[in-house]
Simulated assay, not measured.
Amino acid sequence: MSPQSPASPVSRELSRDEGLRFLGNVSFGRIVFISRAMPALRLVSHAMDDDALLVGLPYDSAIASLLSQVTRVVYEADLMDAATRLGWSVVLTGRAGLVEDPRELMRARRSLRPLPGERIDVVMRIRPELVTGFDIRAAGAPG
């Protein structure tokens, strides 16, 4: 008898609702936007607010000028185990705008956890238009 080899991991696409739920389980990700005709990427903190994503950022003139109008951005977050290579990744595309109402801003700042050594000066709300992603888990693991 030969020893059984472990089953190969299984990858599956996530639904929109699953992707939003996964985003609610982590507190940071990466925002991608165009600045000076070039793609820019920032590691930022986030929190779900109903079906919108709140993103907290330190003040950055490129982001502030970008968000002076509602604009399209891409947001990505993941949680992968380096040893097992199991986990998930979600990409959200949507329209972003600054949170400017003082009450909303105060509530948003309470729900966001800044990255170590940073503070939250600006909060943006991203309204998801497209949510895609995948989940990689061990074969036979509950879905």
Rank of each mutant, 00 (worst) to 15 (best):
R113K: 08
L54S: 07
V74W: 08
E76T: 12
V123I: 14
F28T: 09
G117W: 08
L92V: 15
A138E: 15
R137Y: 05
E76W: 09
Y59I: 10
L41F: 04
S5P: 04
A82Y: 04
L79H: 12
A83Q: 13
L41Q: 13
A62S: 06
I63E: 04
T93A: 13
R110I: 02
L14C: 02
T71L: 04
F22E: 02
L53G: 04
P58Q: 12
I63P: 01
D50Q: 15
G24P: 03
A139E: 15
S15K: 08
L79K: 08
L41D: 03
D17Y: 03
L14F: 01
L86P: 01
A138I: 07
L92F: 06
M80P: 01
S11F: 10
A47W: 12
A64C: 03
Y75I: 11
G56F: 02
T71F: 02
L98W: 00
L112H: 08
A7N: 11
S5D: 12
E118I: 01
W88R: 11
V131R: 07
A40I: 09
F28P: 00
A7Q: 15
I136G: 02
A139C: 07
R42Q: 10
W88T: 09
I34Y: 02
R109Y: 05
Y75F: 15
A138S: 13
G133A: 00
P114C: 10
V99L: 09
R16C: 05
I34F: 02
G140S: 11
D17M: 06
S5G: 08
S68M: 12
R36C: 07
D78Y: 00
G24I: 10
V73N: 06
D49S: 14
G117L: 14
I126S: 08
I136K: 00
D50H: 14
E129K: 07
F28N: 12
R21Q: 14
V122R: 04
L23K: 08
P102R: 03
S111T: 12
M1P: 09
E100D: 00
V99S: 09
S68Y: 06
R36L: 11
S15D: 09
R103N: 10
G117V: 11
T71S: 10
A108W: 10
M38W: 07
S68A: 13
R137N: 08
A64G: 03
R42C: 05
V32E: 10
A141Y: 00
F22I: 00
G97P: 00
T93M: 14
L14R: 04
R113T: 13
W88F: 13
L98C: 08
L98F: 02
V26S: 03
V73E: 06
F22A: 02
